[in-house]
Structures are given as structure tokens and as C-alpha cells.
């Protein structure tokens, strides 16, 4: 169980990115974190994985707990060893390494080296396409293939929880569907908990059990997926307009006003 309590993050000692963010990822569940550009979704993930430091960010308040242990302030490599693996935004595969070498980097912190060849096969089981490309430089792969590789790199670490930062970014809609099906499959077959950050709320909610909505650095709404899907304001803001509301900008504005008080 990953639990974030009342976390505040400040960049360069001056820019407040998120404030009072609390969320939970129970074991074996998929949790979605939704929100628009600049809402603080990626910051939340980096606060968990410890990558914040490299960008000049710091957790100034609150705690992050993983399996009853405080993990905030640890170096990223220690956090990976604890079983939390973040697939960072924009895929970021090692472009000058081959596909297989990329997968090996994912297993960098693993102590049980002899199981690694089996795990590579497991990645190929989820993403058969990667097997054909395994000797190829990963910089030459398509966006979708790179995203599969980035997630595969995550599987190689055998994490207890996988943090996915916008897996749909810059990928053809058809492939997005496929990749989210793969994520669901990893969750059920491996029992890995998943915290997925998305702008594409429709696709994220299609696989998630629970969701949080983040806006201007605060959590403005949370609930089970069924509850959020039936909520009018969420539909209007994140899932596209209903036909009858189409074009009426006032509806949206009033929604925003109400929401400030949540």
C-alpha cells in the first residue's frame, strides 16, 4: 500500500507545484490520477519516485509511506529497490541501446540475476512485437513501440507498484487502446499495483478501479470509477461534452466556480 499524506512540493524554493495532496494506492489495484496540463500530476509521481531532486524540486511538507515505511527524501535508486518503479513521461528509452539492453537496464537493481532471461521472455509475452525488434537500436522504434519498451523496462524491475506517466502521450489512438489493455493484463497477471497519470481520462478510467482528479496542484475530486463516470462535472470537464451542452461555455465556467470550494 502506497500512501501519500498532505504532500506539498516546491520547485527551486519558489514555485509551488502541488499542495495538500493525499492519495492511496491499495495493493493490486489500478488508480488513475487525472488532470489537465500543469495540474501537478507528474510532480506527484516524481515526489513518490524521488526524481524530483534532479529537477530542483523538494517535498516541503507531508509524508510518503510505502508499506508502512517513510520513503520521501530517499535517492531514486533506493526507491526502485523498495519496489516502486516510475515509467517517466515521454517514454525516454535509451536511444543508443538496443531493445534488449534497454530491458536489462530495467533489471539493474535486481539481486536475482539468474531469473532475468525468464523475465525478458515475460516482457516479450506481453509485447510480442518487441521480440522481433530486440537487436534493434531503440531510437529507431516507433512511438508506440518505445512506449511498450518503456513499460517492459518497468516489468523487468519486478516492482510492487508501477507509476505510469501519460502512457498515451504522442501515440496513435489504436495503439493507445492496445497499450492500456496490456497495462490491465500486467496488473492482473503480475499483481502489480498501478498508479497511472493521464490526460486522456476516458481511456484511463476504462481500466482503473479508483481515480483522483487534480487541478492547480490540489485534489479536487476522488472516488470509485463508477461514481466519477456518473458525475456531471467530471463528464463536462474531462470526458467531453454531452450533446445538449455542446458549445455552452457558461456551463463549464459555473462548474469551475463550484469546484473551487470542494
Amino acid at each position: 500500500m502506497l500512501r501519500i499524506n498532505n504532500v506539498e512540493v516546491v520547485y527551486n524554493k519558489s514555485i509551488l507545484a502541488i499542495r495538500g495532496v493525499s492519495l492511496e494506492v491499495p495493493d493490486g489495484k489500478i488508480v488513475a490520477l487525472l488532470g489537465s496540463n500543469g495540474a501537478g500530476k507528474s510532480t506527484t509521481l516524481k515526489a513518490i519516485s524521488g526524481l524530483l531532486k534532479q529537477e530542483g524540486g523538494a517535498i516541503t511538507e507531508g509524508t510518503i509511506e510505502f508499506e508502512k515505511e517513510q520513503i520521501h527524501g530517499m535517492d531514486p535508486d533506493k526507491i526502485v529497490e523498495k519496489g516502486i518503479f516510475q515509467c517517466i513521461e515521454g517514454r525516454r528509452v535509451f536511444t543508443h541501446l538496443t531493445v534488449e539492453e534497454n530491458l536489462l537496464t530495467g533489471a539493474y537493481t535486481r539481486k536475482d540475476r539468474k531469473n532475468i532471461p525468464d523475465d525478458i521472455e515475460r516482457v516479450y509475452h506481453y509485447f510480442p512485437k518487441l521480440k522481433m525488434l530486440r537487436k534493434k537500436l531503440s531510437g529507431l522504434l516507433s512511438g508506440g513501440e518505445q512506449q511498450m519498451l518503456a513499460i517492459g523496462r518497468g516489468i523487468m524491475a519486478r516492482p510492487k507498484i508501477l507509476l505510469l506517466d501519460e502512457p498515451s502521450l504522442g501515440i496513435a489512438p489504436l495503439l493507445v487502446k492496445e497499450i492500456f489493455e496490456n497495462i490491465k493484463q500486467i496488473n492482473t497477471e503480475e499483481g502489480t499495483s498501478i498508479l497511472v497519470v493521464e490526460q486522456n481520462a476516458n481511456i484511463a478510467l476504462s481500466i482503473a478501479d479508483y481515480a483522483y482528479v487534480l487541478e492547480n496542484g490540489r485534489i479536487v475530486m476522488q472516488g470509485s470509477v463508477d461514481k466519477l463516470l456518473s458525475d456531471e462535472s467530471v463528464k463536462a470537464a474531462y470526458l467531453g461534452f454531452d450533446k445538449k451542452e455542446k458549445g455552452d461555455i457558461r456551463e463549464v465556467k459555473s462548474y469551475k466556480k463550484i469546484k473551487r470550494f470542494v
Partner: peptide, 12 residues
Amino acid sequence: DDQMAASSVGIS
């Protein structure tokens, strides 16, 4: 190749 990505996979 990529420092940020290297940290993210647990390389110190």
C-alpha cells in the same frame, strides 16, 4: 544516453 531515465530505472 539519458540521465533522468537512468535514475528512473534505479541506476545511481
